[in-house]
Design a binder for these strands. Structure first.
Length: 748
DNA sequence: GACCTGCTGCGGAATG
């Protein structure tokens, strides 16, 4: 039964039947954020962001007052639109909310691509209660049922955005902002927005995201005491032995492998990876853990190794893979294993970083340096969530043994330094703010077409007001918007009637009428991998799959039986050997602050207490090499025919410097932490840098024009060269940042 | 040198 704490101000304001639900849960008291959220949400006058760690009770914090509000009202229509980035999360939340909903007689409707169409139809016949939906399904409602929406949303009271942080700064987030605005337009009134988020790097940006132009009015709810938990962090170092120059395993082609080679592949495992797998096996077996690995291919490699270790010791397998190319069934199996009675450890990519409830893990492992503080913090949050438990995270970092053949950049052990830098920043409670000043013209194209489909036709001026001036694309002025419409008109995506009404063109109709239209993001073509009629997952079509090929996938080894190019289906059967396939991928973007911290670490003498003995050795080695190369004095280093330029800044700045040097006729490539300039001495590179620093920062759009390939996002193909340049410049160039860095180099 | 996310309506066949 509730304690006296329960009779605090917040609890008293809740509806009696909501209070009864809380009693039934036998909660002793409401959590701090739940208490704080009641008054602002009940008022239904303002937007609210509730920010707290995973499993902090954010869902209840939002829905206790929301349900209370709904209890006092009657009428027809959807009352609450809950928007989630994940279908799995909608299923999870449906289970949780429908218990409360049943007691309160408020219907809850899950709504996404896997939900039966008939069920959605029925929900629309008598719209009511709470709809749990994805941005894509909401987009589909606008395109397919534009005329009905005014009735459906007329009584809308709240918009709830779950995992708000996952939307900020990305295409899908821009789409969401646009949809939120369009919902209010058809509803005919302002609808308070409630954002639920993990801890954010910049609450101001999040507030501005949820209500563009009026961020300062958003009410922020954060736990008063967020750092009570004990952290146990270890960074473990491993040496990658230098390859024997006379025997190269990699030269063996995949076609050469047959069953008899199975043992040989095992011995071909590099020593560092076997050592890491052996340690993971030793410390994780018998408990529930997550092993985060940066690449899907490595997830497969480690899942295979760990499973074989179990088999060798005649133990049941407790290690299961989980990543975005595995089928829903296999992923659910792994998630169920974590919730089950037997111990299980899941080897995963970012797939288990957020969202669905998998309970608390004994520990977290991270193989390879992570790319951001934000995601590291999320991963850490999956462990030690029970009161009094420490959160445990082990980092496993491999660095090459340094020989006379090792490149300068490798001998600086940047992977280890990145891991340490990220842990340091995590301990300082810093994390990356999202990047929010992108134009997102690809997503604007989608929204223009969708708006025309919704209304059947719209005037150009009106569509600019809706989408840009008062909508989500505030950075797009009227002139730019008209340019964009001209591009679309020129390609028959849209046309204009004599009365000035914009309509869909033939090509636009075709685009909008295909279901692939509803996503704002790009997706690659893939093969489906099938065994005995069961889908295991997918592989990108770039990967050459041929009959007879051996493959490691979904934690097991397979032989390819047949490849159906037409249907894009690959049939496989179990085998005793296999190789890890390559999955397609892009590069990520590391923040300035992480590289600055790495630079500081090279210069410093401090030895962090969380390093093991080998990691300490590697750190000392990296510092010795850093000073041996004179990198404290100059970031330029001669290396044979090349000059290396070390940039202790984020990837946005490095990319900008690269494009600038290329534009001046230099041949430039890049490594993790250095630009590699071919056939140029440091003196020549320095002259070029001086020339750049002598003038004010270059115009990013002019700079973008020097680049060949700028089509990156889904509808970029419809942009003119001029718009492509503007779009690229807004997303991938930081000219002031680059200018500052270069100025520092030439003056220092 | 990454990772992740998502999707309608219809026509026709098979089944209860």
């Amino acid at each position: 039964m509730p304690s006296s704490n329960q009779t605090s101000s917040g609890f008293d304001q809740l509806h009696e039947r909501v209070q009864r639900w809380i009693w039934q849960q036998q909660w002793m008291e409401l959590r701090d954020i739940q208490e704080q959220a009641i008054a602002p949400i009940l008022s239904a006058q303002r937007d609210v962001i509730i920010s707290a760690a995973t499993a902090g009770g954010k869902t209840e914090a939002a829905f206790l007052p929301i349900f209370s509000k709904l209890m006092d009202e009657t009428g027809s229509g959807i009352r609450v639109l809950y928007i989630s980035p994940l279908k799995a999360l909608i299923n999870d939340q449906y289970r949780r909310l429908s218990q409360m909903g049943e007691l309160l007689e408020i219907p809850i409707h899950p709504w996404h691509g896997d939900i039966d169409a008939g069920r959605k139809q029925r929900a629309l016949r008598h719209p009511s209660g709470v709809v749990l939906i994805t941005p894509e399904s909401l987009e589909a409602l606008f395109v397919r049922r534009g005329y009905e929406l005014a009735g459906i949303f007329q009584a809308l009271r709240y918009l709830v955005i779950d995992e708000l942080h996952s939307f900020i700064g990305v295409e899908r987030g821009k789409q969401l902002q646009s949809l939120m605005h369009r919902v209010e337009q058809v509803a005919g009134h302002c609808v308070p927005r409630i954002g639920l988020s993990a801890t954010l790097g910049d609450m101001g940006l999040a507030a501005e995201f949820i209500r563009p132009g009026k961020g300062e009015k958003v009410w922020l709810v954060q736990p008063e005491d967020d750092d009570g938990q004990e952290l146990k962090i270890q960074v473990r170092g491993y040496r990658i032995l230098a390859p024997d120059l006379f025997e190269d395993e990699d030269e063996k082609s995949e076609a050469d492998i047959d069953e008899a080679d199975a043992n040989e592949i095992k011995t071909a495992d590099s020593k560092d990876k076997s050592d890491i797998a052996a340690h993971l096996f030793k410390v994780l077996r018998g408990t529930n853990n997550l092993i985060f690995i940066n690449r899907r291919a490595d997830v497969e490699a480690y899942a295979d190794r760990l499973r074989r270790l179990c088999e060798q010791q005649r133990l049941p397998n407790e290690f299961l893979p989980h990543h975005g190319s595995l089928s829903k069934d296999l992923r659910e199996e792994a998630e169920q294993a974590l919730k089950g009675d037997r111990p299980a450890t899941v080897v995963c990519t970012t797939t288990l970083e957020m969202g669905i409830d998998i309970g608390s893990m004994t520990s977290i492992a991270q193989v390879g340096a992570p790319f951001s503080v934000t995601s590291t913090r999320q991963r850490l949050g999956r462990s030690g969530r029970r009161e009094g438990d420490a959160a445990i995270m082990r980092f496993y970092i491999s660095e090459p043994e340094v020989t006379p053949y090792t490149s300068p950049q490798d001998s600086l052990h940047p992977e280890l330094m990145q891991a340490i830098a990220i842990v340091n920043l995590l301990l300082k409670r810093w994390c990356e703010p999202p990047v929010v000043n992108k134009l997102h013209l690809s997503t604007l194209i989608q929204q223009v077409l969708s708006l025309i489909a919704e209304r059947g036709g719209i005037r150009a001026k009106q569509s600019w007001e809706m989408l840009c001036q008062k909508g989500a694309f505030t950075a797009v002025d009227q002139a730019l918007f008209i340019q964009l419409l001209r591009c679309l008109g020129g390609q028959d995506l849209i046309q204009q009637t004599q009365e000035g009404l914009l309509l869909l063109g033939l090509k636009g109709e075709r685009l909008v009428n295909h279901y692939s239209f509803f996503t704002a993001f790009q997706t690659p073509e893939e093969y489906r991998i099938v065994t005995h009629g069961k889908t295991l997952g997918t592989l990108p079509v770039e990967y050459p799959l041929t009959e007879g090929l051996y493959l490691i996938f979904a934690g097991y080894r397979w032989r390819v039986l047949a490849v159906d190019q037409e249907r894009r289906v690959v049939d496989v059967e179990r085998a005793a050997t296999g190789r890890v396939p390559s999955f397609s991928g892009n590069r990520g973007w590391i923040h300035d602050r992480i590289r600055e911290e790495m630079y500081r670490l090279y210069l410093s003498k401090e030895i962090p207490i969380f390093l093991d003995a080998i990691a300490c050795d590697l750190l000392n080695e990296a510092r010795t090499n850093f000073s041996r190369y004179g990198l404290a004095d100059s970031p330029l280093l001669s290396n044979g025919q090349q000059t290396l330029l070390f940039c202790w800044k984020g990837d946005l700045v490095i990319n900008t410097v690269l494009v600038q040097l290329q534009a001046r006729g230099l041949s430039v490539g890049r490594d993790a932490i250095a630009l590699i300039i071919e056939d140029a001495a440091p003196a020549k590179v320095l002259r070029e840098l001086r020339a750049i620093a002598a003038k004010p920062p270059v115009n990013p759009v002019t700079l973008a024009a020097t680049l060949q390939n700028k089509m990156i996002e889904k509808y970029d193909q419809f942009l003119s060269e001029e718009l492509l340049c503007q779009n690229y410049a807004s997303s991938y160039l930081d000219t002031p940042g680059a200018w500052n860095m270069i100025s520092e180099i030439v003056s220092g």
